[in-house]
Design a protein around this nucleic acid. Structure first.
Lengths: 335, 335
DNA sequence: TTGTACGCGTTATCAC
DNA sequence: GTGATAACGCGTACAA
């Protein structure tokens, strides 16, 4: 390791023949510096390859110019095929780039990891914290918010904490999907629900229940965890429970994909015998057999919206507690 | 924003009735502190909810306990369905968690982003930099390495810089796949190659070329960019160029997936008329029609290995310049 | 074993 | 407009 001593403000100041304070002003874009001096300083900065030390800066400014994105690393799901988390990451990264801030990614899978996240964020080492899709009633968002740390969640916090959040319109999206099925004459509409310790799972099930109930239709529910494997198992259960079912709404495209295959293996034609609708609109949805009709959610936009809210909070503004993004039914061939 | 003043070392010291230095020792796990005092300090820390200020700490220790993972945000591909980048992220996060370091994610899509990455990493604001899949001849890794900043790339740097890297055995994996096709009697084996400004694209094409050449077979190449759309276009080109082709090796599963559909639309049966093999082994590969035979690459392990190498370099050890991870041919129904 | 004192590289508050 | 100088919160020789 070459200990190539990085130049400091001091070094630049000497080189340019001015004081540290002046260099600092130029570096930070103060306008109250004579043009000639600015040029001299800039030249010195260039020649020495000076780069400000962020640690020193944040020590005095009390800002870190970075925000944390916390994801619960629930085994396989976080980076599973459904692109939900990558989409959020991408949206957040885009928005933060525009704000010239860094994205610190934290996976809080293990209890130890969860504690690390708490230590790190509690210690004000980031300007704010983004929570992606919580499991169960995580008390952390509420706790941080109470400590005055800017926090934004994706999805309503399940513990009822008064934390600002952004979410997609699960209920509305599912309702539209189920109404579409009903409109096509389907009468025995089942659902493969998502995990009931996550808002997305809970609300999509609510959307299904409300809509079939409103139409006076019976409900038929099996549970999965958004993955394909769970979708396969759930589809089999449904088929066993009601061999005559004529439609399935799956709470994720992955589960819908698995349902498609399971139905085919069971001798059902899609959509002739059974119509299938998924949720997410992942890229694969256009390539399933048959192509999947699904509820599209604006996942990158979700990441961006969360980040924008967070930045506004960090800037001292107050934001609405809930922001709900619209979904859209994408019609393909499966329903 | 409640300016809930965070307690400092000073505050803890007063509370525990000792000096700052002693508190610092306890916090950092020094053994040279009397047990009774340790307890008193720990209690004070607990009561005040003290958390060390990382900025102050890194200012004096010259370490940041965080490493950057730089990804080229090439439009859609970074977070496309193929899970390559998410896999690397996940592997890196796992390994860093074990080392108690933070993962700073940087997307260097735009030129501006690229420059930000340079500023940030050059300024020694991270203990090391991981580069995921570079496009073209990016000079940044080499430059950072020369500045003495620990750097590890995924894939051999195309500009020939002497930077340590970890990669999967593209050539070997492809060779095995193509030999499998040959062994099954295929004689007109085409390939849908990846982008030729990325190592993965280049080397997979080399693997194909070497193997068909060694068998005295003709080569037939069309280019894509790893995405499904490009796979569709490439497959059409190949079919137009040689309607009699009896096998296709696609440099990514997404392109293979598109090829599957395109072949079916063109009236070819897979694998009867045309055998298809992909590369990646994404989750979807098991769910295509027919299920896709493919070359599996250990992508999460790649992320982990890169990170381990980086940590070793940062710790002052010297590591081998290249580390190549094995691939594996996963046989399903498409070939 | 514990405390004192200094320095890490910035920004911010003053005088000038 | 510019330059001293005092924080910012911590680690660590060095002294006690």
């Amino acid at each position: 390791m070459t200990t190539a001593q990085r130049p400091t403000l001091e070094a630049v100041a000497r080189r340019a023949g001015v004081s540290r304070a002046t260099v600092s002003r130029v570096v930070n874009g103060s306008t109250t510096v004579a043009e000639s001096i600015q040029q001299a300083v800039r030249r010195a900065v260039e020649e020495l390859g000076y780069v400000p030390n962020l640690a020193a800066r944040s020590l005095v400014t009390q800002r870190t110019d970075s925000v944390a994105l916390v994801m619960p690393e629930a085994a396989t799901r976080v980076f599973s095929d459904d692109q939900v988390f990558p989409g959020i990451i991408r949206g957040a990264a885009q928005e933060l780039e525009a704000a010239d801030k860094q994205l610190v990614l934290m996976l809080a899978g293990s209890p130890a990891g969860h504690e690390r996240v708490e230590r790190y964020t509690t210690g004000r080492h980031v300007d704010g914290v983004l929570f992606a899709s919580l499991h169960g009633e995580d008390p952390l968002p509420g706790r941080l918010a109470r400590l005055g740390i800017p926090v934004v969640c994706s999805g309503r916090p399940l513990d009822g904490a008064e934390v600002p959040y952004v979410d997609v319109d699960h209920v509305g999206g599912v309702a539209e999907a189920v109404r579409h099925l009903i409109g096509n004459g389907r009468r025995r509409i089942a659902t493969i629900a998502g995990p009931q310790d996550m808002v997305a799972g809970i609300e999509r099930l609510i959307g299904y229940r409300e809509t079939v109930a409103a139409a006076g239709l019976p409900e038929l529910v099996a549970y999965g965890d958004f993955t394909r494997e769970s979708g396969t198992a759930a589809m089999r259960q449904l088929l066993a429970a009601d061999p005559e079912l004529d439609a399935v709404f799956a709470a994720s495209d992955l589960m819908a994909h698995a349902a498609l295959r399971t139905l085919r293996e069971a001798g059902r034609r899609v959509p002739d015998d059974v119509a299938v609708i998924g949720f997410d609109d992942i890229e694969t949805a256009a390539y399933t057999e048959p192509p999947l009709t699904t509820v599209k959610q604006p996942i990158v936009e979700l990441g961006r919206a969360m980040t924008r809210q967070l930045l506004r909070i960090a800037a001292g503004e107050t934001v609405e507690q809930a922001l709900v993004l619209p979904t859209e039914l994408v019609l393909r061939d499966s329903a």
